[in-house]
Each structure stands twice: as structure tokens, then as C-alpha cells.
Design a protein around this nucleic acid. Structure first.
Lengths: 341, 341
DNA sequence: TTGTATGCGTTATCAA
DNA sequence: TTGATAACGCATACAA
């Protein structure tokens, strides 16, 4: 049992080095404002004591925490994990640290996490999607905490965003699918009630159908939380209905991979009997067999740019313009024209 | 341009509610120590002002940040992302928030991140693997910051760990492979110099070889950073060598999936011509075709248990015992016996 | 049940 | 170039 002596403070370092606390503080924060000789003495004391500044005191005195928060639906989905990784890397470059929370796609949890991260000293926040209780935005405003919305781009929204147009991306993919002769379309989607990205993706398909003279009402939709298993189950349901779709859109790659697996189990040939389309373009998509046709979401770029936007704002620089990135359709092996019967 | 008024403080709330700051503080922290009527007044004022406690001040006065840090190699690998997700969920249950940093498998970056997270107020740390500069452990000790090591289990180490025995897990898999008649073995591994888990996994294979009377020197090894592409390249190199291996172990599933893809490109049948073995059992493994035989790492359980261990320690309760979890071999479709030629 | 008053460990202003 | 000292906003011991 080693006795735990109290962690060293600025005073201890100052005493050991024979200078004032002010000098130690300067040594640590503005090394060039202090004489070479003094600095050496101080740094030696710092190392000898294993000193590290007390965070609370520093935050209070400097009115800065150098901490930025991110709240994402889940790290289990690679698309968010990767976006977050890029976000953190970029923050690090600018000397900021990352606070993370996840909401499991639940608005109530998300709101709690937003308040929690602000209470934990987050100076700015990365959020996914625009849609949330106006109270939340008001709260962030009174707290002076800027936020950036990612994974969505909508110039009509008052807040800065770094993302892509989910509706347009899905519309492009759907138009491509329809041009190959598909008329009986289906969609396996996340719950659209609490997910504006899912909502936008659905709108994209309906938009494309309208443009092609198809009636959006004929789109069969099953909503289910993102998971491989749910994708499989939903696919089976769709393929057991009266009019089998010839193309099944999925809200993301995870659902699509589940659909793909079930198709194999059911001996339904992909893409000969049915085309399956994903969204996100995570590793899963290229590794799946057959490789998934999907929409590439620029997750790393979004994370990186979002970090830049927030750092700028926190440092009091002019607010950057919203950034629109493009999500590109990636054609692989699960899409083919409708077979002549 | 809205004028940004200063963010409200305890004083403001106290003034608005017509009570002292002490009462407001109690309302927020010990609601039942204050009269119903007073509490209502206070909470109304809190909401009206959009008050949130100042983090620095709170941390300093309470000597607590309720923040715990984690440093992992990368969130890009699902196995860490998922462990982290579970870790964060469990922390939340106990009222703690997560600070995250990644090291890209670089010891120098990791050390910097450790110091950074401590400076940012982390009260405890989750680390991956045991091996690091003793200075780092000394630093954590003087700072009074407990840490838990995951992704490894080694009772000989002085620090508490929550993990599994990498060597033993790989030994079990290798024994299975050897029992199927494989004699020419190869390994695609991460850089073993800075990765004690990779080192242990290699030892596991060599151990099994020795047990079966094979010479460990015959194991062909290629080291490469974890990536699908690197797995593919290394696989091609191995299969172009004089004595083609009949079984290729991979340091993780990501490398294995790359090997699998290249095998398909090279028209090498898996598992008929060569068996391919992964490690981790992330989604990629079950989605790959053929589905990957691998070792299941209990990532969620590790994250959850690690959080419990740290929370306990931070709350001054007796240090928990190291926790050994088991990593189980998952037989899928990329392993078969050696063909009779 | 509520209020008063002190201290927490820094940073930053000012003077030396 | 350095030192003394006043905030910073909250929790808490103590008093009422």
C-alpha cells in the first residue's frame, strides 16, 4: 500500500524551482516570455514532480477547456466511427480534445447528452442531422456553445452544416435503378419519425419515381432499426409479398448486407432476380458478396471539415459557410437491369 | 447579429429565484435537502435562464470531473469502436462522460494522448495492451489517475486488466488448424514491435506448432499495418513463394478479408486450396464470402467491465480483481482439412 | 431549511 | 524578466 501524496500544484513547482507561481504559469503557457535559465529550472521541477495542471482551475481561470463534443447515434456503425475518427484527428491538430456520447438514435437521449456534454465543458458540439427540439438550440445559444450539423445539408436551415443532400443522393441512385427498367420498388428504412436523414432518403426515391412517371405510393416500405438481422427479416417479408419488388433500396449498408444474406439463404439470385442497394459505402459494402451497389458518404471529409468549422467558431473567427459535400453513387455488383421474363 | 449576453451563473439563478447561491447549489445537487416550494422556484429560474453549471468551477470546487478517458489505436476498426461504444454506455449509467483519443498504433502518440487526457481532467483511463514506457505509468501514479488495461490479460502484470489471453486464443485456433493436417503455415501480422497483442498472437501459433512437433521457424511471417489492401498484398506475396502455405493466419479480420479478396482474384479456392483465419470476429467476418473462421473477441463485454472497474476505483472502492474473459474460436467456412494431392 | 463565508488552482493584470 | 494579487463560479462547513 503506497501512500498517495496529493498531486502537485503550481505552488509546489514554484517552491521547488524557487520562483513565483506566475513564472511557472508563464513557463508552461508562454515559454518565450521567460528567461532561458529560469525556464530550465522550472521545467526540471515540473518533470521531477510529475506536474500536470489542474483542469478545473485552468478552465476557470482561462475560460477555455479546449474540449469539443460530438454526439452521434452509435459508434457501432462504421460510418459514424470513421467520421468521428477523422473529427478527432483534426481536433488534435488544433489542440482540442474530444468528448463523445451516443444517442442510440433516440431524441430524448440525445438531448440529455447535449446538456451533459455542455455541462462537462464542451465548447462546441458536432451533431448529426438538423431535426431536434427548438429548446435544445435555444439552450446552446444561451450557453454560447456553437454547433455544426453533419450528415445532412440543407441551406434552408439556420444552422451551419457540413454534409450532403441525402434526398438528392438517393434520388440519383433511384433514377439510375429506374432507368434500368425497375418498376416494383421497395425500401427498407430506419424509423423515419426520428431520423431526418432516413426521411430525406425516402423522399429521394419518391422524387425519382415521380420524375419517371411512377406513383410513389407503389413504393413498399418497411421500417426497422439498423441491423443485419433486421435487414434480413425485412427482405424476407418483402419477397414474400404479392408483388415482389425487383429492386430493394436499403436505408444503409448494414440493412443491405442483411438483405443480401437472406437472399442467398432464400436462393434468390442477386442481382438477377432482385437488385439490392445500400447507402454509406462502408467496408461491409465492398466485402459483401456480391459487392454492394451503394452511395458513398464522405464520412472522413465530413468529420474533418466539421472540426475545422467548429475550431474556427470557438476561436472567435467569422462563421464559415455551410459546406456541401457530394455523396456519389458507387456501382458494384448488386444492381442489374430487370430480366425479361 | 444578436448580442451574446454572458452565460448565466449560480448568482443569476439565485437572484432571480430570490434565494442564496448555496440553496441553488443544493437544489441542483441534493434536491431532497431543500423545501418543495423553494425547489420549484429555483428550478423555474434555472429553466428560464437556461442555466448550466460552469464546468471549471464545479470541477475545482468538487474536485471531480466525472470524466473518464479512453485511448485506443483507432476507431476505424469496428472491434475498438464497439468496445468503446459499450464502454461509453456503461459510463453513462454511472454518470460519467467519455473523453476519447486515438493513437494510430503509435506509442509516442499514445503517450502524448495520455498526458493530454489527464490534463483535460480524465479521472481514470482505459488503455489497450500492457506494454508502454514505465514513465507513463509513473506519471499516472503521481497524478492519482487509475487505469485499466484491456484487450489483453496477463496476471503477471502489476496493473488490473480486463481482457483475454491473446496467446492462448491464437494457440487454440492454431491447434485446430494443425489437427486438420496443415503443416505449411503463414501469418500476416501487424507490426509486432509496438503491439504486444500481435506479439502474443504470433507466440500462440508458434506454441501450437511446437506442441505438434512442428518447427516454429517454418512459420512464414509478413508484417503490415492493418488494412484490407495490406492483407491482400501480403497474401499474394505468400502465395507466390516457393512453398505455398496451406493455411494463412491473419492478425485480424481486416487483413483476413483482404487475403480472401485477393484469393478470389487469384482464383485460389478458399478453403479448398488454402485456409484463411481471422481474429476479432467483427461483422466483416460473417459477411465475407466464404464466411471467415476467426476468434471471437468479447469487445462489448470488455468495454462494459472496464467501465465498471474504473468507476469503482474512481469512487474509492477497493480495486477489483483482474477480469479474464475468454476469446472463442468461431468456425465458419474458410477452414478445411488439407487436400490430398 | 436556508444563508454566509471560505477556498479550490489557475490565469492575467499590474507594478516592480 | 519577474512577483504580488485579484478574479473565475461553485461546493461546502458552519452558523442561523
Amino acid at each position: 500500500m503506497t501512500t498517495q501524496r496529493p498531486t502537485p500544484t503550481l505552488h509546489d513547482v514554484a517552491a521547488k524551482a524557487g520562483v513565483s507561481t506566475a513564472t511557472v504559469s508563464r513557463c508552461l503557457n508562454f515559454p518565450d516570455q521567460v528567461a532561458e535559465r529560469t525556464r530550465k529550472k522550472v521545467m526540471t521541477a515540473v518533470r521531477a514532480l510529475g506536474y500536470s495542471p489542474n483542469f478545473g482551475a485552468k478552465a476557470m481561470a482561462a475560460k477555455r477547456t479546449n474540449t469539443i463534443g460530438a454526439i452521434i447515434p452509435t459508434m457501432e456503425n462504421a460510418v459514424f466511427a470513421r467520421g468521428l475518427q477523422a473529427f478527432q484527428e483534426e481536433l488534435r491538430v488544433h489542440g482540442f480534445t474530444l468528448l463523445v456520447a451516443s444517442s442510440s438514435y433516440r431524441p430524448d437521449v440525445e438531448e440529455e447528452q447535449i446538456r451533459s456534454l455542455v455541462a462537462r465543458g464542451a465548447e462546441a458540439l458536432l451533431l448529426i442531422g438538423h431535426e431536434r427540439d427548438p429548446d435544445v438550440y435555444r439552450f446552446l445559444e444561451t450557453q454560447g456553445v456553437p454547433c455544426v450539423v453533419t450528415w445532412a445539408y440543407d441551406p434552408h436551415q439556420p444552422r451551419p452544416s457540413v454534409g450532403f443532400d441525402n434526398c438528392e443522393a438517393m434520388r440519383t441512385l433511384a433514377a439510375r435503378v429506374i432507368s434500368l427498367g425497375h418498376r416494383d420498388l421497395a425500401l427498407i428504412s430506419a424509423d423515419t419519425a426520428s431520423n431526418d436523414r432516413a426521411k430525406a432518403r425516402q423522399r429521394g426515391i419518391e422524387h425519382a419515381m415521380r420524375e419517371a412517371g411512377l406513383s410513389p405510393e407503389t413504393l413498399s416500405i418497411i421500417e426497422a432499426p439498423y441491423s443485419i438481422e433486421n435487414g434480413a427479416t425485412a427482405f424476407e417479408t418483402l419477397m414474400s409479398s404479392n408483388i415482389r419488388p425487383t429492386a430493394v433500396f436499403c436505408g444503409n449498408d448494414v440493412l443491405a448486407v442483411g438483405a443480401l444474406q437472406r437472399a442467398r439463404d432464400m436462393k434468390i439470385a442477386v442481382p438477377d432476380d432482385v437488385s439490392i442497394l445500400g447507402f454509406d459505402d462502408i467496408e461491409l459494402a465492398q466485402v459483401a458478396f456480391p459487392a454492394l451497389t451503394t452511395v458513398h458518404v464522405p464520412h472522413r471529409e465530413m468529420g474533418r471539415r466539421a472540426a475545422q468549422v467548429l475550431v474556427q467558431q470557438v476561436q472567435g473567427q467569422p462563421m464559415l459557410e455551410p459546406v456541401e459535400l457530394t455523396a456519389e453513387v458507387i456501382i458494384r455488383d448488386t444492381l442489374a437491369g430487370v430480366r425479361a421474363h
